[in-house]
Amino acid sequence: MNSTLHFPATWLVLTVVAPIASVVTGLAFGSVDLPLGDVLRALIGKEATLVTDIVWQLRLPRVLSAFACGGLLALAGALLQALLRNPLADPYILGISGGAAVAALSAMIFGLAAAAVSFSALGGALAAVGLVFALGFSRGGNMVRLLLTGVVLSAGFGALISLLLTLAPDAQVRGMLFWLMGDLSQAQAPGPVWGILLAALGFGWWQAKSLDILGLGELKAHSLGIAVRPLQIAIFFAASAATAAVVVEAGTIGFVGLIVPHFVRLLGFSGHRRLLPLAALAGGCFLTLADTLARTAIAPQQLPVGVLTALLGVPLLLFLLSRKA
């Protein structure tokens, strides 16, 4: 790829054009399509019209949540790929989503309110993080053991999820499936996810060079003056916080965390100082667009956004991979 000519354009698209376009698209389309001019007027002015209400009360919180969740997933994926030195790592590989899902689905079976479901998802996610950390990092643990611990726990949680789905009353199964496939329809308060996104991104940016070096192997990183184990623990918790925030906000949305970092790498941005912010932006745009589509494709019915991220993301990445090879 010709870096000198190609980069500024790619850069501009990723950092400015795509984010604005995806947010505006998300605001304009829905069960009622709004003219672009009305959307912009509603964003600037504050006269109380129906359009202003739709934009500010309904769509903006959801679009902002979607953007932050997409950013968090891409960031968590990139961080875990660096931590585990494994290109197949995604935000859910260490079992965080499984723990959250078991807790959330249990709450649903007991008929708890949405807020309580989110709360137990948070509890489940934190419990899974604690368990993986305790088992994976104990006795000078290594990353292979961490990975295996996470994968094994994920499989265990997967079995529990199947069990819960079998035991649940039919009327609840649909809601549970939506939760499992990722669903932003309950996402109305983007503040916390944005806070965690900015914190995790700040951490990643600050440690970008160390993350690059970690990719060379633990011995080399150590010999270059990196405090390897503390760094690994910090990455683990940063990625876990990012993943847990999304799972609580929107359930388990697949593919964003796996695909977006590779998408950005295939565009030619490999160092973490560029990769992390660009992946966060690209993930945000991607999930915002996917969620818009999920709301509109067969409106007024909504689709689980996780299905769309896979349906859109898989062909895109396969195309890029085949072109690069």
């Binding site: 290109p87 060079k209 160390s210 690059d212 060379l216 270059l224 490999s270």
Partner: peptide, 25 residues
């Protein structure tokens, strides 16, 4: 400075970017 036995690497950048990591200290 240490040249360990090859541990394999996860590095997608260029040769120059790779060598520049040696300047981390």
């Amino acid at each position: 400075g240490v040249l360990p036995q090859d541990e394999g690497h996860e590095f997608w950048g260029t040769v120059l970017e790779y060598v520049l990591l040696g300047r981390y200290p």
